[in-house]
């Protein structure tokens, strides 16, 4: 690769490392020893982690977020896979229209999305239940799930499944033996990517929580508004670590090239 000018390079490096800076500051502040948030801290301790981990409210919120993310990711991945497979094999002509519909939530400001979903869930009578949050998350993440799966499926030679069928395999068997193993990275990308987004979603979710159900990020948000106890820094760090683990996992099992792939190719 060619060189770039020193100025651009320096700017690039500076800006790049500004990106994680606020997260890093939260991380450092979480080891703060004093009763209010300080950066840089004057003393260090684990007291906020102890408090975070012993407070049942936080443990519950982490648990809720994790299982909602898991259910959302699994459902949305199955739905995307079936739809992408059906469209590519049986109805390539509806592909453009379907993608337009699937990607349309992306062009919806999140505030509108929040009000729209809370209105719908209120009609269903499920606001304040985990199902409202899961359904809303599914609408938010569907484009992020459909794309990697569609790309993976499209790259599988369609004759492979026909070959399996000629050899006597039922469609289901051919899917299991041939297509699924070959789309592994696309499916894992969908699972992890939509799981991460669901876990960290807050703008839409905060409209849908109830007295019994709240997610980790919404609870952090509520607490920041109420009081800025340093326990939030510890909790935030925990959520960052969970997200970070998921991203590293994604890098290991499927690679990150998906994120910088043009959709057209």
């Amino acid at each position: 690769m060619q060189k770039m000018s020193p100025l651009t390079r320096t700017l690039g490096i500076c800006f790049l490392f500004l990106l994680p800076a606020p997260i890093f500051i939260v991380f450092v502040a979480s080891f703060n020893g004093s009763a209010y948030i300080q950066f840089p801290p004057e003393s260090y301790s684990f007291r906020w982690y102890v408090e975070a981990l012993t407070d049942a409210r936080w443990a519950r919120a982490v648990g809720t977020s994790l299982w909602i993310a898991a259910v959302t990711a699994s459902l949305v991945t199955v739905i995307s896979f079936l739809a992408a497979y059906f469209t590519l094999r049986y109805a390539p002509r509806i592909n453009t229209a379907l993608e337009l519909a699937i990607f349309s939530p992306l062009f919806f400001p999140h505030a509108c999305m929040g009000v729209a979903t809370v209105a719908l869930m209120a009609n269903f009578g499920i606001v304040g239940t985990p199902w409202a949050i899961i359904l809303a998350h599914m609408m938010v993440v569907i484009p992020f799930s459909y794309r990697p799966i569609h790309i993976a499926l499209r790259s599988v030679d369609p004759d492979l499944i026909r070959a399996a069928e000629v050899m006597g395999a039922s469609e289901l068997r051919a899917l299991k033996d041939i297509i699924l193993p070959m789309c592994r990275s696309g499916i894992l990308t969908s699972l992890l990517f939509s799981g991460i987004i669901s876990f960290d979603e807050v703008t839409v979710t905060m409209f849908l929580i109830g007295p019994d159900v709240t997610t980790l990020t919404v609870q952090i948000f509520t607490f920041i508004q109420d009081d800025a106890s340093p326990v939030l820094a510890a909790i935030s760090t925990i959520s960052v670590v969970l997200t970070f683990i998921a991203i590293i996992l994604l890098e290991r099992v499927a690679g990150l090239s998906f994120f910088v792939q043009r959709s057209g190719s």
Partner: peptide, 29 residues
């Protein structure tokens, strides 16, 4: 380097905003 971009992208914006509160607040960094 992509991870350095992706992590801030995917970490909840509540947490990132919280970081800015610590930086920009009246008693902030």
């Amino acid at each position: 380097l992509l991870i350095v971009v992706l992590v801030p992208w995917l970490v909840s914006l509540v947490v990132r905003t919280y970081g800015w509160i610590i930086i920009l607040g009246p008693k902030g960094f």
